[in-house]
Amino acid sequence: MPNIQQLEDLTTQVRRDILRMVHKVNSGHPGGSLGCAEFFVALYKEIMETKEGFDMDGISEDVFFLSNGHISPVYYSVLARSGYFPVDELNTFRLIDSRLQGHPTTHEGLPGVRIASGSLGQGMSVAIGAAEAKKLNNDDHIVYSLHGDGELQEGQNWEAVMYAAGNKVDNLIATIDVNGQQIDGSTDNVLPMGNLRAKFEAFGWTVVDIEEGNNVEAILKGMSEAKSLAGNGKPVCVLLKTVMGNGVDFMMHTHAWHGKAPNDKQLATGLAQNAETLGDY
């Protein structure tokens, strides 16, 4: 049984990492990062089966693709705190000569990252490709991916959604971060998403809802269910309902912090709400 307290402590530390990273360079995307902190912690610490070290091909292990690359702070923090690279390197986020680019990339050779992302809508296709390669290699591990809900406005996603169902890519679990926000406002105001469950089901996917997407236990339960549904001839979609900016009260329930860094005072407030647990980098 996973130790929930440990996972929650790590999540708190990850929130601190996110705030400190974006504050230091006065840029980056804290809102979506904070909203997905629990998901990343659960995924990397409990859900995925990964090997020691990192190799690009990811043979005989689960692999993950971040499609909405702008939430790189949470990705980098959890990768570092899962041993992919030194935690101290979080200090270099968005700085010149860093492996921690504004958006994730393979270009600088950062362990843990298998594709560049940032220009939205491309990650599901890539995840499908990796899943098809796993099938050819008789590798029964799973490919996970994460996408923003606003990101689904990019048409390539729907090409991918159609392909995955039509070709029974059932070793793929694509999670949608349903926070209802995007840069210009709520998704309902910018371009309404409609009923995502109905949409994915209509395309032939199995859909799992995680209503409490900022609750570690709920995520573990939902992702375990998703895992159990893999291998049944259908790709699996997880609709992860999260709160953008979760864990920092003034950043929650708004799109305002999508791509804005806190100032010194705001940082202090955010950190005060998330006491150090595992030690700052």
């Binding site: 693709f65 594709i115 809508g121 890539v126 098809e132 050819l136 290699n137 991918a160 159609m162 392909y163």
Partner: peptide, 25 residues
């Protein structure tokens, strides 16, 4: 088994191809 018909969806095709290299294809 090594031929993938993606339909009229070139963007998806390029992405799938990129993903397939991860796994040595």
């Amino acid at each position: 088994e090594r031929f993938f018909q993606v339909g009229i969806a070139e963007a998806n095709m390029i992405g799938i191809a990129a993903g397939m290299t991860i796994g040595g294809k």
